[in-house]
Design a protein around this nucleic acid. Structure first.
Lengths: 192, 192, 192, 192
DNA sequence: TATGAATGAGCTTTCATTCAT
DNA sequence: AATGAATGAAAGCTCATTCAT
């Protein structure tokens, strides 16, 4: 309502965006545990500023990838609605998820790190994406297109794992492997 | 005369085993990049002793896991000979491989690390196990029990990845997921 | 506004001077390859601070001695102008140079070290002082007061060497020996 | 008198000679502070053997160079007897001394090191060579060919210094500089 | 609120030296 | 007497994190 407050907020947001862009760039170049100093330098700010905005590294990573995680989350229902079969919808969604992860150097590995710094990060991914994955998987199970003995958590964890190190060796195609895993979800044909 | 020389060697060997045990323990606790100091402390020796026996970290890691890698490698042909179908043999071998990896906390992750220290380690695994995996997979393909479009390297890499972080979350069962992947190898049923 | 920026810089500069003093003291006590940790301890700072200000050891050494090297360099022309003969001017300048070196315990030795860390240091000395020495020597040669077969580089190198270890043994007077060397520069009297 | 003792002594001497040769080689390759291990390896013995024969590094260095130091020492009187003038004899002897030092990489520097390990080494050189230098210098003074105000110790120390680092820079010729110094010993011509 | 200087823990690696065999 | 395995002190360097300005 006053002019002051909004203006400040706008400035702050611009500032924060600069930080996020810098972090994203640093993450691409050196992985998600790029030195704080590098990020600060890219953003043209002091390290203190980063710590003020993002107290832990997980906060920063989450902020950097929030948009894309959200996009991935919201794609779930659309795919379910617009794809021929629930299994195909699940496969397509997994593809999206893998695409996201393999392009974020080091992110998949960070999700598996036992460094407690990354617990928050892990939790965020589970929080936002697990329900989506669960509903897709559940639909497939209901349609008889997937075994009922696979938990959505395990599936997501597995797919996340398959993305680790992807891109470092041309002989390894994470997307292909993830699709193999999804294919494996189909109920085995009745042993005639 | 014949007693003298061996005696020293026996001691040295015992000592080396102590080192390997300590390293294994440290690897479990802190991953394969556990500080050399920690390993030395666990073994009750000075750091110099570690460097004397294992000049590079890769030497140490390979030594720690050599026995089990060799056992895994030699199990391949036996399984192929003694199992009902090639696909079942492959599944059984993958099970062995996963069993090995999931009990070596941090090893799977190290295999994916881009730390150059681990290149030798990675190479050793590929060297010893890839041919085994390849022959099993090839037999399955020949028997019409597996798609021909999956490279053994990719399969091993994927299975290795699935083992990362296993045991940290009870909701994730790496063996189960690996078997899903193997199930996904089966040729898709002809779309009748 | 004009006060803010300078204040920080003033502090930093004071700090840097503390560092230089500490380094100078450490160099006296333990030579110019005194452990970084020692220097930091003397200055009452962490090692990181040293690395921040002086990324390489050569940077630190040059900084420590810069003032005096510059003073020595600028004294050359003055002496040439204000002294009775070119040879006397050269002798006086060499005296200055020796005075500088002998009071910097360990510096002369470092200039001769084959440790690559010191290459930059050596280069700096040559850069700043060699031209000065050369002009003095050349004037003496022109005046018929010095043999033409001695290169300024060799002369400086020799004088530098004569200063090594000076002060450790009371029976050795580097200045005296340097003057002997300068005396030896005079052309030999014609063998009548 | 018995056969045993002499034989043993002969063996021991041979062994020691092997050590000295190895040390000499290591000194050439890596200076007089070459790692003990290198020397042991070259000699094909364990490090313990070196320590048994030469408790301190100085002992080893002295032993390695003893022959040559003795040769240099005994050359003094011969030169004095067989050279035209005492000054020329001194000059020739300094030449011998410089030749010796510049071919022993790092030796001149070790003589100036303030590492207490090398005190013995320094003492040995002074012990054996100072009297020789003193008698040559004294003869030159007596003949009116050298100033009386230079102590033999200082002269030797200076010449030793001039040899430091010789051979590392082609622009520096230690022998030339030493001869300059010796030339400077001549009494200045009477200021007519 | 932003800055970036300072801190110091932590890791690797090298050798001189000791001492059990 | 010889061996060489073991020891561990040292030293360099890198960041994550704090905090005075």
């Amino acid at each position: 309502m006053t002019h002051e407050a909004p203006r400040k907020r706008a400035d702050a947001r611009r500032n924060e965006q600069t930080l996020l862009d810098a972090a994203a760039a640093a993450f691409v170049a050196a992985g998600v545990d790029a030195p704080v100093r590098d990020i600060a330098a890219r953003a043209g700010v002091g390290v203190g500023t980063i710590y003020r905005h993002f107290p832990t590294r997980a906060d920063l990573i989450v902020a950097v990838y929030r948009h894309q995680v959200e996009a991935c989350a919201s794609a779930g229902p659309d795919l379910l609605a617009g794809t021929a079969s629930p299994h195909a919808a699940l496969a397509a969604w997994i593809d999206l998820f893998v695409d996201f992860l393999v392009t974020k150097h080091g992110l998949a590995a960070a999700l598996r790190s036992d460094d407690t710094t990354f617990e928050t990060l892990h939790a965020y991914f589970i929080d936002r994406l697990l329900p989506v994955c669960a509903s897709l998987l559940s639909a497939a199970v209901t349609a008889g297109e997937a075994r009922p003995d696979v938990e959505p958590f395990a599936l997501m964890y597995a797919v996340g794992n398959l993305c680790i190190g992807a891109g470092r060796d041309p002989r390894y195609d994470a997307r292909h492997m993830a699709q193999l895993l999804v294919a494996g979800l189909r109920p085995p044909p009745p042993a005639a």
